[in-house]
């Protein structure tokens, strides 16, 4: 059986909120290392990969591998019933028909309990190769969100060009063009504002802004976002969570002109 207790419901609320417009039905794969999710969007352009390590829960118990097939719209409805600060416990039997969610208020004696019916989801798992990326950029997640939203007002696509000069986000559309360039920057007092660019070779790739703006819904999960790029491979957008847990998005590049 599975029993996983989260100190704050907020974490799961934010994760589900960040991915629910990209993927609808997905398996939450539970084993003794934690709860993982991997799903592609309908058009097979983007891939979501979430890992909530067992250390992110206290306690965490999962005796055998269980796949919880959950509709994210249903999960969102139930998670709305939890206060952000509630303690959240996920429970399931070994061959479950439902997943049980318990919300407890730390401040009062309220205890809410919900069951969500599970679905049989035949999901293909993709092997994501270990990649030595040519460029890795760490930057404030709010800054990345603003850049993506701003550029989407002008164009459907953004080119991300990383050189030793810095990283340039550029677009052009019917009304004109725009770009934002960032250089490495260290803020000793506010390290969450740092921009770090680690480059082994120059990279230039083009991506759909619609997807990037969607990924940025995860901005509330982490002060910093990491962008990993290599020529002609999908972009990795990573939001690191506590205890080595993470929410990652992969986006296939656009090609040609």
């Amino acid at each position: 059986m599975l029993e996983a207790r989260l100190e704050q419901a907020n974490l799961l609320k934010k994760v589900v909120d960040a991915i629910k417009d990209l993927v609808q039905d997905c398996n939450f794969d539970c084993n003794d290392s934690g709860i993982a999710l991997q799903a592609m969007d309908n058009s097979h352009v983007a891939l979501v990969s979430m890992m909530l390590k067992s250390e992110s829960f206290s306690p965490f118990r999962c005796d055998r591998n269980i796949a919880l097939g959950i509709n994210l719209t249903s999960l969102t409805k139930v998670l709305r019933c939890a206060a952000n600060e509630d303690i959240l416990t996920l429970k399931a039997e070994d061959a479950p028909d439902v997943v049980n969610l318990v919300f407890e208020s730390a401040e009062s004696d309220r205890l809410s309990e919900y069951d969500i019916k599970l679905m049989d989801i035949d999901q293909e798992h993709l092997g994501i190769p270990e990649t030595e990326y040519a460029a890795t950029i760490s930057m404030p997640s709010a800054e990345f969100q603003k850049i993506c939203r701003d550029l989407m007002a002008l164009s459907e696509s953004v080119s991300i060009e990383c050189t030793k000069e810095g990283v340039k986000f550029a677009c052009s559309g019917d009304i004109g063009s725009g770009s934002v360039t960032l250089r490495s920057h260290t803020n000793v007092e506010k390290p969450q504002l740092n921009v770090e660019i680690d480059l082994s070779e120059p990279v230039a790739l083009t991506f759909s802004l619609k997807y990037l703006v969607n990924f940025c819904k995860a901005s509330g999960l982490s002060e910093q976002v990491r962008l990993c790029l290599s020529n002609e491979v999908p972009l990795l957008v990573e939001y690191a969570l506590s205890n080595n847990s993470y929410l990652r998005f992969y986006l296939a590049p656009k090609i040609g002109d």
């Binding site: 592609m40 097979h44 352009v45 083009t206 992969y250 296939a252 590049p253």
Partner: peptide, 14 residues
């Protein structure tokens, strides 16, 4: 116009 690649072109099915 630009073409959009599929993620399946990069990551193989397990």
């Amino acid at each position: 116009s630009t073409g959009q690649k599929s993620i399946l072109g990069f990551f193989s099915k397990k």
